[in-house]
Design a protein around this nucleic acid. Sequence first.
DNA 1: GGCTGCCGATATGTATACAATGATCGTGCA
DNA 2: TGCACGATCATTGTATACATATCGGCAGCC
Lengths: 243, 243
Amino acid sequence: MNQRQTVAERGGADRSGKNGDGAERHEEIHRSISDAIIEHRLRPGARLREDALADVFGISRTGIRKILQRLALEQLVTLTPRRGASVTRPTAEEAKDVFDARQMVECGLMPEVARRIGDDDLRELRDMARRERQALKSGEQSTAIRLSADFHTRLARISGNATLADFVERLCSRSSLILAVYGNPGHLGCESHDHDDLIGYLETGNGERARAFMSRHLKAIEASLSIVEEEAEAPDLHRIFSD
Amino acid sequence: MNQRQTVAERGGADRSGKNGDGAERHEEIHRSISDAIIEHRLRPGARLREDALADVFGISRTGIRKILQRLALEQLVTLTPRRGASVTRPTAEEAKDVFDARQMVECGLMPEVARRIGDDDLRELRDMARRERQALKSGEQSTAIRLSADFHTRLARISGNATLADFVERLCSRSSLILAVYGNPGHLGCESHDHDDLIGYLETGNGERARAFMSRHLKAIEASLSIVEEEAEAPDLHRIFSD
DNA sequence: GGCTGCCGATATGTATACAATGATCGTGCA
DNA sequence: TGCACGATCATTGTATACATATCGGCAGCC
């Protein structure tokens, strides 16, 4: 009894077959929006109207609201009462918190990752690093950014601790937002060869080296940002015109 | 308990008067349910029917669903498609992950906490520890459990890193669930004087001592559990009757 | 007598309708 | 001409109605 004839795939996008199971469809939409944010196709501050999204994805506002709420808990979108949803614009303080958290968790995970990493993992990580380099070379910044976040997340998952891996995943998503706001154009977060070097340390089982390298790696990303609190919200006119 | 039947009978007239802002009301309900779970008044596995909750809190199912979803993302309740919501029953693996995560984050936070702690914080922490001891002595287990989780959360928040503090808060909530499933009755997680000792180390600014003590403290809690995977969900009949 | 399959009851999933609120634009007055 | 006030509009918040899947019981059949 697998007939599911009542799912109307309106909106012209029949993606990945006809498996339009509600939950999976929602998952898919969540991922679509999430990816768009992480890849900077939706910039911080962009408004996300429920009607428009409902129209685009061919479901009703009810489902969209559910997804927006989830994105809000993941801190990718900000829900302002009566004003709707918009892509979160991280503050300088949040940026610092996120990178401090990454220092603690990602570095702390490295020894365990080095212990548990297997050949399959190494192969996959190398492939991801390769695709990232390739994307960078061909100027596909969006793809490179997402692959970089995917790389860090995948790494954390090798540790076997799902709770910490989920946390790292969210931190990486938020980092992507931070890059969008405070990053310098043309200078992407991760150096192109860093990830390859990291894989090398992990392959030889040198957890402490990997930890130290990850620490430098993250510090380098953070240092590449120009974090200046832009007071776009309420510009201090007095200060600006005080001369 | 109350005669809360159909508050919105006459439209918005009564709402403008009592300042019953929807968002705050939702927050309140979320907290009510959350507390009930953390305090073990709702045991793992308990079903949470939408209709019943809607009836109890006097709002419609729409609002309840929103809250249940949030609780699900916080991993306090489990949402099974078509089966509804129930209080999460953590697996042994999840329990291990949660305590490993707490080791990494809470211990890692101690030096910074020791650096930033102030007199107000110390006063408040002492008060919390005192109330916890008192609750334990008078047999109010529910209160003691919640106060213990509050203590750890409050501690993390002193670090100034909101992201990590939120994470710790969620880990503590989940720990409370873990205690409900794997804890031994009569032997609560935290020793009654541990928290006071910890405050002592923090007061003298000895971050490393505090970190080491926190590590022992968490290990002690974890050791007090009897983590045996009970396969009540889907007993493996083949394995059981294989002889 | 036990197992299987159907059927009603119950609860959830989804969409839509309506209400309320904040934003925008136009008009009137100083 | 500029500002303030008011009406309209756009958008979200909430509730309810309808569709659909699951669970428990009962009867019929092997």
